[in-house]
């Protein structure tokens, strides 16, 4: 549970009394490779901090899984939108490697928010952080080329490239190869489509959307 303490203390300072109240609310959960931490349609019961392993956050679309994020050592994990809204999840969270997650249930977290004021501040700060991350990603998605997004990812989370299969990175960067997606194939003739292909690809089968 040290990890929980360190993680919370990255945001706020805890007294021993506060920690004694908080610690028992967190429990460890093991997921073997391939297991669903949360599945579309379920209500996410817990909010997690990752002790070890990698999880993928994705949603099914057009018969494919569109990857929108990853959880890894020290990061948050779980389907946060479903956790806070108490509505069925729209994302799948799957353990890509054997994972140990430290989780707190919704009810217990709400109780802590009520009883321990510093926890409420911690909660607010996480949401602020998540919101900033979301805003950054939105700009990256809307305004940057796939290559720039890839460079950004390498700069921001280089370790992800070692942990996650290339196809999930590609999906995360919205570079998933789809017959209809390559530079509007079907509209352009093959020659024009080839001219639109990115100058640098990190896998030959990948094409920018």
């Amino acid at each position: 549970m040290e990890l929980v303490c360190h993680t919370i203390e990255r945001y706020v300072a805890l007294t021993d009394d506060e920690w004694a109240r908080i610690a028992p609310c967190w429990r460890e959960y093991a997921y073997s490779k391939g297991a669903a931490v949360c599945a579309v349609g379920q209500v996410e019961q817990r909010f997690y901090i990752v002790r070890s392993g990698v999880q993928r956050l994705s949603f099914p679309h057009d018969g494919q899984d569109v990857c929108v994020g990853f959880g890894y050592d020290g990061s948050w994990s779980g389907e946060y939108a479903s956790f806070i809204s108490r509505k069925p999840a729209r994302f799948d969270v799957v353990a890509m490697t054997d994972s140990v997650l430290l989780g707190i249930t919704y009810d217990e977290l709400q109780q802590l928010y009520k009883e321990v004021p510093v926890m409420e501040r911690f909660g607010r700060m996480i949401v602020e952080e998540l919101l900033l991350g979301r805003a950054t990603r939105e700009i990256e998605q809307m305004s940057m080329s796939a290559e720039e997004r890839y460079d950004r990812l390498v700069a921001r989370s280089p370790h992800l490239l070692q942990l996650v299969p290339q196809k999930d990175i590609a999906s995360y960067l919205r570079m998933t190869p789809r017959p209809s997606a390559g530079c509007g194939a079907g509209v352009l003739d093959p020659g024009q489509a080839a001219a639109c292909a990115p100058a640098r690809c990190f896998a030959p089968w990948m094409r920018t959307r």
């Binding site: 460890e28 959960y29 093991a30 997921y31 073997s32 490779k33 391939g34 297991a35 669903a36 931490v37 799957v94 353990a95």
Partner: peptide, 10 residues
Amino acid sequence: DPPRQHGASS
């Protein structure tokens, strides 16, 4: 075979 089905957890 759990790894080829939906995995296993706590």
